[in-house]
Design a protein around this nucleic acid. Sequence first.
DNA 1: CCACGTACACCC
DNA 2: AAACGGGTGTACGTGG
Length: 462
Amino acid sequence: MYGGVEFRDYPDADNIGIMDHGCLPMIADMHKYGIRIDVPFLQSLSQRIAAIKEDNETIVGALIGNYQYRNSKGSYEPFKIGSRDHLSQLLFEELKIQGDTPIPRTPKDKRYEVSEEILEPFRESHPIVPEIIEWHSVEKLRNTYTDTLPLMVDSDSRLHTSFNATVAATGRLSSSYPNLQNIPVRTKLGKEIRRAFIAGQNMALVSSDLAQIEMVWAAHRSQDPTMLSVFRKGEDIHTRTTCNVFGLDYPEMAALIKSVDDKTATPDQLSRYAYFKQFQRLPCKTVGFGVLYGQTPEGLQSSLASDGVHWPIERCTKLINVEFFGVYPGLLRMLERDWATVKRYALCWDEFGRVRLVPEAKSVLRHIREEGVRKAGNHPEQASAQGNIKLAMAELTDIYRRMNRSAPCRPLLQIHDQLITEAHRSITQDVADIQAEILRNAVILSIPINASSDIGNCWAEL
DNA sequence: CCACGTACACCC
DNA sequence: AAACGGGTGTACGTGG
């Protein structure tokens, strides 16, 4: 029993009602406090980005000369880098940068696809391509984040997002006005934006996240012996998968990884590591993420291709169906049970009884049925993982409110498997310890749940 | 002029 | 048909 919520092996709307109401007070606190923004820093970032964009435009302008876009009426318009229609015509009809490589068309066959994923392989084919790619990436950052967020702060430079607990079918929260659950992290320039999210005077930010939480729930639900052993021993799941698939010795590979991390690796070790990482661990890791989402061999193939690993479809099929599920046969049996439930009842539920309806599962059209099964297939893990963090939020609310009476301690953000809190410097270490501790013990499974905390002056340091 | 759909990009 | 689950926001293009 966790704050009135219990495990359930049947649908139970009352149980999840208690859970969802339990985390509302913390959501209210998060909304009230808001996260502090370094507005001048964000504005300077906007300036830097504007300079990059203008350079891109100058070069593109010089390269296209007097080219103009020809619209559907046959008349000409000035070329716009931001228009997908214009890009399709310029790159694939005028310049023909694709040579004889076929380029996919948009679903309604209006034009060629011009996404970054399509353009990237032709980066070297024409000097205009990298300029266009960069223009689009920096404009995204400027329009969505650096220009917009400063307009939304209050008089204390704080940003009060709205968390919505009634949108996502799996019980996740969503965030809007602005969305603070999709702040960039992947690229160098994007991550700079996180430097603008700062702690108040004499305070620091504390972030804690649950490690591999959906995998942990999959291990618990499936009772697959190898998965259970991974989490009991505290192994890296993807490295374990890789070792079992390719017949490698786990301690040996763990030592190799450590020697590279410590920068004590010999040249021989470095090249062995490079191969291991890209051609053995990466495919296994990709499958590990993909299987819970019902990934197909084709999906795996295209995902690997964007990381420079070009595997034939047969190899992808074998990795998923033979090798991966050979390592985790219990996981496959669990997924098959879940799929059977969906096909039979057109619904499924998580470990707390949160139901997802999947009417598509009864469609006469096979592709609609399969789509329904894929959607539902991930529900038990994603929803259970949300239950995990929601129960932790409920437990932490009063602890933080009590602490906040003597020194500032304010929950700010929830990002699916992560909680970010702002606290006075005198108590940040305590908050870091408590937050991780409660995330770890909010529910007790047959394996330990791991969580860790970071402390920093800004979000980028977390 | 506004509302909406499409395609794309950002996150976990 | 689509091919990987869950979200939000923006620019562009179209149609009322």
